[in-house]
Every structure is written in structure tokens, then in C-alpha cells.
């Protein structure tokens, strides 16, 4: 995702001179192509994220379209006030690319991995939150950000994500994607975990459980039409996310259910635990640890259905 992100930004920058990239002292060589073509449109702002977000806000106020790039763990938490006031309060078209939102950087420990990014952004007015599932969706979300007139967060993984879409994804901001239909249960997920969910659905199929899979690449604003359709059809809905349960995808759906008095369906939420990992694990090991890899997701869903 990281490389497709830099390639796509280089591509769209050719036809849009407003695009500026700000990096927080990461992406060594990753943006070499961009820098070679647009030497005056790339700025390494150093390990100083609060200032970087303020710089982005100033650029946006001046008519540019800044893309801020660093670790998700740094470009939201170190500078939350600047994200809130400089960017969101002023409703500026700043795109914050959060590298490694989720467990991508679990090998580097709790300073570098983050499973709280969606929660802390969901409550910010004007913020749009997008979690692409694969490289094609990263590129589509970057392109769509140029037609969007407000702050946007794009949560990306590092590399080697399974490809979900064979062709160009039918991507539209705020509209969820039906990935596969099913009859017994509906699994809602977001971002790169979609590949695990698709595998979980296959495992369930072997156990004669037919699972519908829906991808909410946009968490905010949420596709309420899709939620209504899902909850009108399924008595059990499962949310699966590479994110902590408080305030994430499942939390958002639970809030929506309460607000809309949905009482006919059960919601099962699957996500990471409400604690920090204190030892370094690979992304796969960390997914296993939290029970969000395909076989463990399938097991939890089967248990939830009492089958």
C-alpha cells in the first residue's frame, strides 16, 4: 500500500499542481520519484508532527492540497490539537495518511502500532475516515480525496496486502461495498482485515454457514442505507476490525443501532483488546493474539451462531 500510495500521489500530482506532500521524517526513498518530478512540492517536516499538521493547514488555507504522511501512531496522537483545531475546526482539505493504522507495526511495539486511530478521529467534526482494503482502493481513495472539501484520514498498511479487487474498484466515498452475499450472518469489516474476513467466510462455508461480507471502507460518514439493508436482512451481524472495540467500527454500528432502535438483530463485535501489547509480535502473530485472523474470526462467529 505504501508504494502504491506514493506512485498514485506522483501520478495525480502531474495534473494537479495544488498537491504538496509533507512527511514526518519517514518514507526514505519512497518518495524519490515524486521528489525528482516535483522538488518544490515535497517537504520533510522532521520529527515534529504538531508543526507539520499546522503547516498543512496553512498550505490548505492558501489553496494547496496537502497530503501529510507519517506513521498513524504519530500523525494523530502527537498533534491531536492541531488536527482538531487547525484542520477540522476550519474544515480544511488536508489529507492525513496514517501509515500502519492497526497492527502493521506491532513488531515495533506500542510506540509504533496504533489501534485507537479510528476512535480518536470519529468524534472530530468534519473528519472523513477511510480504510482501504488493498492497493487499488488506496489509489481510489487518494483520487477521490481531491473532490472532497474537508479533512480526510486514510489508514494504510505497509506492504504485501492481498489484492481484493481484480479490476478497478467501484469506489465511492461513504458507500459501503458488498463483497459477497450470504444468508446466515453478515460480517462487516473495514480496511486490510477484509482479506482475513473473506477467508473466514470461506471457513464458515465449509461449516455450512453462509456469510455475507460487507466492506465499509468509509467509516465516517457511514453508509446508513447499507446498514439499514444489512440489519433488515440479518438477525446476526458481526463487526470485525483491526482496531480496539471502544469507538471503532463495531462501536459506531452499536451507536447506530441504539439511535435507530434496532432490536431485531444481535451485533457481535470482534476487534483488538483494550490493552497495550507489551511484547513485540509480527502483524500475523498480533492478529492471532487478538483473535482477528481468519480461523479465529470464523470460530467466534460459529460460536456466536451456536453452530
Amino acid at each position: 500500500m505504501r508504494d502504491s500510495c506514493s506512485r498514485e500521489l506522483t501520478c495525480i500530482a502531474r495534473s494537479d499542481p495544488r498537491i504538496i506532500i509533507l512527511s514526518g521524517d519517514i518514507g526514505n526513498h519512497m518518495f524519490d520519484g515524486f521528489k525528482a518530478e516535483f522538488p518544490d512540492r515535497f517537504y520533510n517536516c522532521g520529527v515534529a508532527e504538531a508543526n507539520m499538521i499546522s503547516v498543512a493547514a496553512g498550505l490548505a488555507l492558501s489553496g494547496y492540497r496537502p497530503f501529510v504522511y507519517t506513521f498513524a501512531a504519530f500523525d494523530l496522537t502527537r498533534c491531536y490539537e492541531q488536527v482538531r483545531i487547525d484542520v477540522c475546526f476550519q474544515n480544511l482539505p488536508v489529507v492525513i495518511i496514517g501509515l500502519g493504522g492497526g497492527l502493521t507495526y506491532a513488531p515495533l511495539g506500542p510506540t509504533h502500532y496504533i489501534c485507537e486511530d479510528i476512535s480518536i478521529l470519529r468524534c472530530l467534526p468534519n473528519m472523513t475516515i477511510v480504510c482501504p482494503a488493498d492497493q487499488a482502493e488506496v489509489m481510489a481513495s487518494l483520487r477521490s480525496s481531491l473532490d472532497h472539501h474537508g479533512p480526510m484520514y486514510i489508514r494504510i498498511n505497509k506492504k504485501n496486502e492481498p489484492c481484493i479487487y481484480t479490476g478497478e474498484p467501484d469506489f465511492s466515498l461513504g458507500r459501503a461495498q458488498l463483497i459477497q452475499d450470504g444468508n446466515d450472518v453478515c460480517i462487516i469489516t473495514t480496511g486490510v482485515l477484509l482479506s482475513e474476513v473473506i477467508r473466514a467466510a470461506r471457513i464458515l462455508e465449509e461449516r455450512n454457514i453462509s456469510a455475507c461480507v460487507v466492506h465499509f471502507h468509509t467509516i465516517k460518514p457511514v453508509d446508513e442505507i447499507m446498514l439499514r439493508e444489512v440489519f433488515s436482512r440479518f438477525s446476526v451481524v458481526v463487526s470485525v476490525e483491526e482496531h480496539t472495540l471502544p469507538g471503532g467500527l463495531g462501536g459506531m454500528i452499536a451507536e447506530w443501532m441504539i439511535d435507530n432502535r434496532i432490536k431485531s438483530s444481535d451485533l457481535i463485535r470482534i476487534g483488538t483488546g483494550d490493552y497495550f501489547l507489551t511484547h513485540c509480535l509480527s502483524q500475523k502473530e498480533a492478529r492471532d493474539h487478538f483473535g482477528i485472523s481468519a480461523d479465529l474470526i470464523a470460530g467466534k462467529i460459529a460460536d456466536g451462531l451456536n453452530k
Binding site: 526514505n28 522532521g46 520529527v47
Partner: peptide, 11 residues
């Protein structure tokens, strides 16, 4: 040095 280059070239 820092992650992407000479400290003095960055800050």
C-alpha cells in the same frame, strides 16, 4: 543522522 537524512538538512 535521523531516519531520512542528515539532521541539519531536515531541522
Amino acid at each position: 543522522w535521523q531516519a531520512t537524512g542528515r539532521c541539519d538538512d531536515i531541522m
